[in-house]
Write a protein that binds this DNA or RNA. Structure first.
Lengths: 155, 155
DNA sequence: GAGTATCCTGACAAAGCTTGTCGACTTCTT
DNA sequence: AAGAAGTCGACAAGCTTTGTCAGGATACTC
């Protein structure tokens, strides 16, 4: 699995929000703490908002908060959001795998699937609550982040 | 980890050679059996020759053979040959990792390293003898593939 | 030693993906 | 009304991947 820059940025942002108390964090502040170009975060955060991972508030005193408890957000979720399938090769995805042209190549596919499954089980088992705990800092009070629907504005 | 096309092709070629008896296989024949464009194999095979994985013979009746027993060739070896580091992100490579700009980001790096290690242990544990056995077919007689130095012609 | 079969090498174009930036817009608070 | 945020789409630059090709080098055969 390769982690794109955007995925990296997104995970840093979520970790930052997980470590923060309840108050919303401005995009600019997240960008500062994560060392991510603000213009890129401007693309990344809305993606996570649409996915329901994060919630936003506009106007002064606005910003972003988590929309779930960190213990409910896995690394897998975020990675998939930005990179799609976790399989190392397209013939080893779980849905719509590309057919192998080689008669005997499927033996290899088995291994690629093992890699995929190992990755999934690892990333699926790590939540941002775990990460925040490991980071040693305080993190979000569950009471402050009760899920709230925050659909795209067109709704 | 993402597997590039060339890596895929290379592994298919090695598996094909592992399944073949002792005789050399022509590039054209390997291309046919693996469903790989011959022009691409013309790039891939020399790379493996230089790395000592494979041995070549020119002229009529020439072709490629393995230069080692399939049990000594791991998937990891081939993947690394074409893709370099197996880490999902450049701050998690074992040599010369790129420094993390984020103070707390290293918590994430730990996970990327776990992914890396899981991948390495999987790919490092699978040899082409295993794969050939799984494929069910006969494969190379060890007696026929005693390693022979086959350095690049400039030597 | 001529001819042929095979591997070898480097250059390269096309396509695709990733990255980061920008400008114009919407929404919210005061 | 003004200002402080987030939102959205377009896009250019750069990089990587992919596949192709032409010409060269080496070995076998007759």
């Amino acid at each position: 699995m390769w982690v794109s820059r955007r995925t990296d940025y997104a995970t840093r942002a979520i970790l930052t929000l997980s470590l923060e108390g309840g108050g919303p964090l401005k995009l600019e502040e997240i960008a500062r703490r994560t060392a991510v170009p603000q213009s890129v975060l401007e693309q990344v955060m809305p993606t996570m908002r649409t996915a329901g991972v994060v919630r936003s508030e506009r106007g002064p005193a606005g910003g972003y908060r988590l929309n779930k408890d960190p213990s409910e957000i896995t690394l897998e979720r975020i990675v998939r959001l930005f990179q799609g399938p976790l399989a190392p090769i397209s013939c080893a995805t779980r849905h719509n795998p590309e057919p192998c042209p080689m008669m005997v190549g499927c033996t290899l596919r088995d291994v690629w699937e093992e890699v995929r499954d190992a990755t999934i089980s690892l990333l699926g088992g790590v939540t941002f609550a775990d990460l925040a705990k490991r980071a040693g800092g305080p993190w979000l009070d569950p009471a402050l982040i009760a899920p709230v629907p925050n659909p795209s504005p067109t709704t």
